[in-house]
Design a protein around this nucleic acid. Structure first.
Lengths: 351, 351
DNA sequence: CTGTTAGCGCTTTCAG
DNA sequence: CTGAAAGCGCTAACAG
């Protein structure tokens, strides 16, 4: 009754108890438990048995302090409410787990300050490395990044201003795919619901949009481009503003799927049918694109893959396999055609 | 060039450098930085200045090891892909932040083992306390819980088998609200798309469903009840099975909104109109309920509020304000009526 | 009010 | 192959 060997009731068991129980010194326990070869198999077995019997679990703080490593990486994302980042996080989580690390997930929810703050966790040795997915790669952030006291891998963003590992997606090409598709569907007045003006993705996508219009010989005066939040509410408001100002719009290209979903809600209220009156195309290819009516055509920016690649890259660097130079990987988006952009011949495959 | 005082380039600065720089001892630095009153204001200021100049950040592992506390709590949720848990996490995050703690978010994604594993982080002193939101409160889990080496607050689940702090929602009453509403809308053949048989919420909701049917004098043989996954895919498949077997069904009550969304997708494919042919009601009141067509009537189970309450309860216990006995709070759900259940008179307010 | 010192639990030399 | 001992960076008791 004094002690229940199957549990540890608040009484933390340390390496010392294990040593006593196994009749060896604490140094030997450490060697045995870490699978060092400089320890006889018999002793190792005895130590493991003692540890199991006592329900021993190593104190993480002590281990970190001594090893100068926490076996944890952080993933910093802009918004955990956006399913595309959830998908990314799941991919990272999987890799991290396979390689016996831990993941600390941080959502900055639009506060730039949080990103700098997250970088501090690196210096504080709470995490060994970090995957940073930021919408606003500002100068102070780039600077903190450059001088971070541990490896960082950036997903997206302007990695040009900070020389660090990064995985990019060719989103201008993604925009191109969407516009090409809409033109092929016979659309002439293609509007663009872009993200906030001060975000890197919005800048790149806006540029791509105008370029694509030009290449198709369409009016590229950008008068059908509007900036809004990367959210359903943003899409709704942006679409409302755009459609009331330009009733001739026959296609809405949206910088992400949340915006597209908000835009479709707006269309419904305005009694304009999608895709018949207005075709809609988003970006990110989130699962929600399948549940809305009509189902949403979208450009996949391979969030899952990027997360997976970034995690591998970071862990390689952490576990010694890393090389000296800066690594860059760029993935290529692809278009997923669904109902919201194809009148008459809806694609059969909705997954 | 050898040193840039505005950053620390990989060279970790410790309390010793700060002490040297400020011309005091390390003990004094510690006192000053932790705002101890036993330290003159002038010295404190000098130390703070030195720390800032050197870009000093305390080593978290060292601090944790010494203080036996990590100033971090964990939130364990079943599925980060379910927006209701994202909402809960955001609420917890906010409270945690206000009270200057850190949050470690863990998604178990259906693996029971992960929950036990998460509890180990408590013993390993990675976290000081934990909020556990589990679908399957199994015996081994309850046991680990009971003997956890730190405070745990359970959200939902069967807290009866483990005497720990908990915040509940009266979901049987929530089910009642939904069934009452459907009956009031004139529905006679109300089916129930429940969650997996071995989960606590499904057990409770299934019981509530049958009880409510009985109270309305309806057939309570449970032949229109089916168990499926708490997901869109689960809802789709479950609805397909149910509707083909029982064509007379005129209402689908779903154990959560993901199931309801999947069910609506199924209805669309079967060319059965919602709400005209089949009314649909879900539970959780996730934002996605607003983007689907028709918008989804749902029972709010107050995930945000429960997260907020649980976080407060846990932090109170951690920061000393806690009392000895086990705390229990129960919140009361409410119905949010939208289009999917009301033919003819859609409610004006869709937010 | 400030300096000195022990020690949190662990890993890792260095001896034996 | 195993034991002893130092020390990671910090806090908190205890002197002064």
């Amino acid at each position: 009754m004094a002690s229940d060997s199957s549990t540890n009731l608040g009484v933390r068991v340390t390496i010392h108890e294990v040593a006593r129980h196994a009749g060896v010194s604490i140094g030997t326990v450490s060697l045995a438990l870490n699978g060092s070869p400089r320890c006889s198999a018999a002793t190792a077995e005895r130590v493991r048995a003692a540890a199991a019997a006592l329900n021993y679990l190593p104190n993480h703080a002590a281990k970190s302090l001594r090893r100068q490593a926490s076996e944890t990486i952080a993933l910093v994302i802009p918004d955990i409410g956006n399913p595309v980042y959830v998908a990314m996080a799941k991919a990272v989580q999987q890799v991290v787990k396979e390689r016996h690390y831990h993941l600390s997930l941080i959502s900055t929810d639009g506060y730039d300050q949080e990103e700098i703050h997250a970088l501090e966790t690196l210096t504080q040795r709470r995490v060994d490395g970090m995957i940073l997915c930021s919408l606003r790669m500002t100068e102070p952030l780039a600077h903190s990044l450059q001088h971070a006291s541990g490896p960082v891998c950036v997903i997206g963003g302007l990695a040009e201003i900070a020389r660090v590992d990064n995985v990019q997606v060719n989103s201008e090409y993604g925009v191109r795919l969407a516009i090409d598709h809409l033109v092929a569907q016979g659309r002439k007045h293609i509007a663009f619901l872009n993200g906030p003006r001060n975000t890197v993705p919005a800048i790149v996508r806006g540029r791509g949009y105008l370029q694509a219009l030009r290449q198709h010989g369409l009016d590229d005066r950008a008068h059908r481009l509007i900036n809004t939040e990367f959210s359903v509410a943003g899409g709704y408001e942006g679409a409302m503003a755009l459609l009331t100002k330009h009733p001739d719009i026959d296609a809405l290209f949206c910088a992400n799927d949340l915006i597209a979903i908000g835009a479709m809600k707006c269309l419904r209220e305005l009694k304009r049918r999608a895709p018949d009156d207005v075709a809609v195309v988003g970006m990110d290819d989130i699962p929600e694109g399948l549940i809305c009516t009509p189902s949403l055509t979208s450009v996949s920016l391979l969030a899952r893959e990027r997360g997976q690649i970034a995690a591998g890259m970071l862990l390689d660097r952490l576990t010694g396999g890393g090389n000296a130079e800066v690594n860059t990987v760029t993935v290529t988006p692809h278009l997923v055609v669904r109902e919201s952009s194809t009148v008459g011949n809806p694609p059969g495959d909705l997954r």
